[in-house]
Design a protein around this nucleic acid. Structure first.
Length: 511
RNA sequence: CGGGGCGUAGCUUAGCUUGGUAGAGCGCGUGGUUUGGGACCACGAGGUCGGAGGUUCAAAUCCUCUCGCCCCGACCA
């Protein structure tokens, strides 16, 4: 076999067809697969392991900010859901509705919902839980002394989407939704911002993805919210993807659900609520942000396995010795920690498979470190180490004890390099744009029939009007992703109208 | 839900225009040869050609309906 032109493990390459590449990666890495249920996916152990890591770590951050987990019903009575007008308008189109509670065997039609069992009031499957949680909060909140209420829930939700894509948009997905009630507007606004900050930390530190944090424009905000804040990440086709949102709900939902309390002055007032969420979409975001033409590349902090040890047992006489060395190394590594407290997960792959096949499987799955140990390593008391953030052919021979000692710092170095790389990519494709023509050029593919990867984030002045947003969306499929919170931008003129603009906003095509 | 494309073995697919009841590569199993590597050889398992109806002596191939998937649009985390 000639290896002069190394072939990539995933076909097509990212630059050939990004959406298809994405699907192939998800499959090759065994993250998930489409299920027999329309629009729903099966999350396989490797993909679910990534989610569990995200979940565990984000959960710790959520707890550290004073929130506690609870669980509310999957089903929401239609009348509860109907209470907030904007909310209904936003979600009604994608609600699964439960109308019966029993099946019946019909002669002709087979198993059908029993007409006798029709619910007097239909239930909807939660697309989000503001209204059902609000009903509980209304009971729990009597006095300002009951506030704040700081609760989070991990659950599945259902949004009946037209088009689905593994992890990025499925009918059912997993997420975390925080719901809080506060005594004052200020507190609630602070909470909204605090949780956005938690997400920002999580996404940057753990997922190694840089983001722009900011406000959504009115047209993009959560149905029923006063203000929505979001994080926007850039993935490798230069499109934006939302990586966590936090909503200041004002008193809208409190009014709808009757969350009222007696103030310090003895008056009745509606509570100030917030909600915030992050979903399994983050798994897809990591794939698209860090993956390469050989598959997934996982940041160590969310990888289910950090180090895979590949015994080279081609010679029978050294086999036992090699395996024993592998097990010993695994045990030593497992006893270590990186970044102070992260347990190192190690797997010795002793499956009876061709070495090359095994190696490539782990490459496609994105394990941060691969370590080969064979007879030649035994003689030299060394190991052969490959980092997933470096080309497949780069192998480094290292003394065994040196590797054991350095493994934690190598993992940290991979974590850092992924973030640096993602940030460089994001920054290289983020441009200040100062004229309408440049803007249109920036977001127009050179090859309209088969658009190449183009565009990116445009930082441009905007007059704040919805009409302009809609115009741009119609023309280019580009939207305002976020109005950044930082105040680094100078005032200027809207590039579309020439009107005054307080600051630049982030524009992009998005998922 | 609109526009386009596609459903043939686990995956990728040939065959369909010009009907004659399936062929390949990869993967899988067994045996052997190899061995720091996604190897090679031999043998083998696996398909009611998405489903239903129709035309026909005969349908993967033609017709009708239906289901599902992918891409683009509308909508969204």
């Amino acid at each position: 076999m000639s290896n002069s032109t190394p072939k990539a493990a995933i076909s097509p390459r990212r630059d050939e067809d990004f959406p298809e590449w994405y699907q192939q990666v998800i499959r090759a890495a065994e993250l998930a697969e489409p299920s027999d249920v329309r629009g729903c996916m099966v999350i396989r152990p490797w993909g679910y392991g990534i989610w569990e890591n995200m979940q565990r770590q984000l959960d710790a951050l959520i707890r550290a900010t004073g929130h506690r987990n609870a669980y509310f019903p999957l089903f929401i009575p239609l009348s509860y859901f109907a209470k907030e007008a904007e909310h209904v308008e936003g979600f009604a189109k994608e609600c699964a509705v439960v109308t019966h509670y029993r099946l019946k065997l019909d002669e002709e039609a087979g198993l059908v919902p029993d007409p006798e069992s029709k619910l007097t009031e239909p239930l909807i499957v939660r697309p989000t839980s503001e209204t059902i949680i609000g009903a509980s909060y209304a009971k729990w909140v009597q006095s300002y002394r009951d506030l704040p209420i700081l609760i989070n829930q991990w659950c599945n939700i259902v949004r009946w989407e037209m088009r689905t894509r593994l992890f990025l948009r499925t009918t059912e997905f997993l997420w975390q939704e925080g719901h809080t009630v506060h005594e004052t507007e200020t507190e609630a606004r602070e909470e909204t911002k605090r949780m956005l900050g938690v997400y920002e930390t999580f996404v940057r530190e753990r997922c190694a993805i840089p983001v722009f944090a900011g406000l959504k424009s009115d047209s993009e905000k959560f149905p029923g919210a006063v203000e929505t804040m979001a994080l926007e990440a850039m993935v490798q086709d230069r499109k934006a993807i939302q990586a966590g949102t936090s909503h200041f709900l004002g008193q809208n939902f409190a009014r709808a659900s009757g969350i009222q309390f007696q103030t310090r002055e003895g008056k009745q007032e509606f509570g100030w609520t917030t909600s915030w969420g992050m979903t399994t979409r983050m798994v897809g975001t990591v794939v698209m942000a860090h993956g390469d033409d050989d598959g997934v590349v996982l940041p160590p902090r969310i990888a289910p396995t950090h180090i895979v040890i590949l015994p080279i047992t081609t010679r029978e006489e050294t086999r036992a010795n090699v395996l024993e060395t592998c097990d010993r190394l695994a045990a030593e590594l497992r006893a270590k920690r990186f970044l102070d407290d992260v347990v190192i997960e190690v797997e010795v792959d002793r499956r009876d498979l061709g070495g090359g096949v095994k190696n490539w499987e782990w490459i496609k799955k994105g394990v941060p470190l691969r370590v080969e140990i064979g007879p030649r390593d035994l003689e030299k008391n060394s190991v052969t180490v490959s980092r997933r953030d470096q080309p497949v052919k780069n192998k480094e021979s290292m003394r065994l004890d040196e590797f054991t000692a350095r493994a934690p710092e190598i993992l940290v170095s991979i974590q850092d390099s992924l973030h640096t790389h993602a940030k460089e990519f994001r920054d290289a494709n983020t441009h200040e744009i100062n004229s309408k023509k440049d803007f249109y050029d920036f977001f127009t593919a050179k090859n309209p029939s088969k658009p190449e990867i183009h565009g990116g984030f445009a930082l441009a002045h905007w007059n704040g009007s919805r009409e302009i947003e809609e115009q741009i969306k119609d023309d280019l499929k580009v939207t305002i992703r976020v109005i950044p919170l930082d105040d680094s931008s100078e005032p200027g003129q809207c590039i579309f109208t020439g009107e005054p603009s307080a600051r630049r906003v982030v524009w992009a095509k998005s998922y």
